[in-house]
Design a protein around this nucleic acid. Structure first.
Length: 417
DNA sequence: TCTGGGGTCCTAGGACCC
DNA sequence: TCTGGGGTCCTAGGACCC
């Protein structure tokens, strides 16, 4: 038995947790660069504003209905997410953190416990300790728990147990095929052509038909809908295989120096991420591209296998700069760039090279000090000169709330009259 | 004018090995 | 004309997730 715990409109709930005046107000949280809507309060959903809509397309509604817009504040969301997950861990050791706002729980050890009462207690505890409302769906497979959670979201209790539901078929029938976990845009179009319009119809489709189109992934999906668990709980997160830092620019970039500043900056962030994960990269890719929405979008990538796997910032910047030089073309309106660290291996098992001349121990210690300073005093307190000073390519973040829980100088203030 | 970022998994096909 | 069998590794591309 599985439960899926999902935070209700998570980013919006985080903003509300530290600013109670936002309760019952129509608010949205925007993606990086203040580009698209990535979280909506129920009031905004009721206005028919969709997920992922670009902000400039809803300017009128924002004005008309006084919708408050927030730039995303990942320091805050990440910290509150950790707190929620920690609370879940105090209820059961079988927790799979699936995303920033979702976790699967394994309930196999709770045979003699009333699950409704227990999950209600989980829900109340999270609410009381963090201020974040969650919904919980229970079922015999992860895919069904996802569906149960959709039902829970609409129920006043915030809970739904599909396994004790007398009429499962009618629940599945009400789930549109595009809302089934693992069915995206392409596949839902195909399904509809095959006359499969809801979860019930997919469940009752012959497996070979689905297997032929979707491979083993599809077969697992149908079996999961039939109540046969194929996707196990993954309690220990497996180490990352690659890690990427990329951003759209706040403006168009045509200058090589400026482009290199940005790539150097992304490389710095990616290197710090590697060190935090105690991993080294054995290859490095840089990509630069124009706007996706240009009449003829263009982009290019370049990859380099590193002589010795590393997470040393200056070394990685050196290679990233060489790749950027190779990629750059004059007079192209670049809008986005990124670096991808690939072939990640544990820092402790790096194969050294006979011809390596670098003092890796020394530079690792230097990086440790840099990381400590930046952790303590804020990102970018110490930076590399190639990252630039003005950083005019940096993205827009016009309406970011304070980092209430992670920066001492931004703690929330309570008034008392 | 303005359109996010960071991932994973699977498959097919090519190169290569003995 | 007929041209083996069994395998690994890598990459690109397509699909999906939140």
């Amino acid at each position: 038995m599985f439960a899926l715990v999902d935070c209700n409109n998570f980013y919006v709930s985080c903003e509300r947790a530290f600013n109670p005046q936002l309760q019952d107000k129509a608010i949205v949280v925007l993606s990086n660069n203040d580009g698209c809507v990535v979280a909506r309060s129920p009031e905004v959903k009721a206005l028919g504003i969709g997920m992922g809509v670009p902000l400039f397309k809803i300017r009128e509604e924002v004005k008309k209905y006084n919708i408050l817009t927030f730039s995303s504040n990942y320091a805050l969301y990440g910290d509150l997410s950790n707190r929620v997950m920690k609370i879940l861990g105090s209820f059961t050791p079988e927790v799979e953190i699936y995303s920033i706002d979702e976790a699967f729980l394994g309930l196999s050890g709770f045979k003699d416990i009333d699950l409704t009462t227990y999950t209600m207690e989980i829900r109340q505890t999270i609410m009381q300790w963090t201020g974040i409302p969650v919904s919980i769906g229970i079922a015999s497979t992860k895919t069904l728990a996802k569906i149960a959670n959709r039902v829970a979201k609409k129920s006043p209790s915030g809970l739904f147990d599909l396994s004790i539901c007398p009429d499962q078929d009618s629940v599945l029938q009400k789930i549109d095929i595009s809302d089934v976990w693992g069915i995206g845009r392409k596949l839902s179009n195909w399904m509809k052509e095959q006359n499969i319009h809801n979860a019930l119809q997919l469940r009752d489709t012959d497996i070979p038909i689905i297997r032929k189109k979707m491979g083993v992934v599809g077969e697992r999906l149908v079996r999961e809908l039939r109540g046969e668990s194929c996707l196990p709980l993954e309690i220990c997160p497996s180490p990352k295989k690659e890690t990427c830092v990329s951003r759209s620019f706040g403006k168009v970039v045509t200058d090589l120096t400026e482009l290199k500043e940005a790539v150097a900056h992304f490389t710095t962030k990616a290197s710090a991420k590697l060190r935090k994960q105690q991993q080294c990269a054995s290859a490095l890719t840089v990509f630069i591209r124009t706007s996706r929405y240009a009449s003829s979008p263009w982009g290019d990538t370049a990859t380099l296998a590193l002589p010795v796997a590393t997470n040393d910032t200056p070394e990685l910047i050196y290679y990233a700069m060489r790749l950027t030089n190779r990629l750059f073309l004059p007079d192209v309106p670049y809008k986005k760039a990124g670096v991808i660290m690939q072939g990640l291996i544990p820092q402790s098992t790096v194969q050294s090279s006979l011809f390596d001349t670098k003092d890796r121990y020394k530079s690792l210690r230097l990086m440790e000090v840099v990381d400590q300073i930046n952790d303590r005093f804020g990102e970018g307190t110490i930076k590399f000169a190639v990252e630039g000073i003005k950083q005019e390519w940096k993205m827009k973040n016009e309406n970011r709330s304070p980092s209430y829980t992670t920066r001492a100088d931004q703690l929330p203030v309570a008034w008392c009259h």
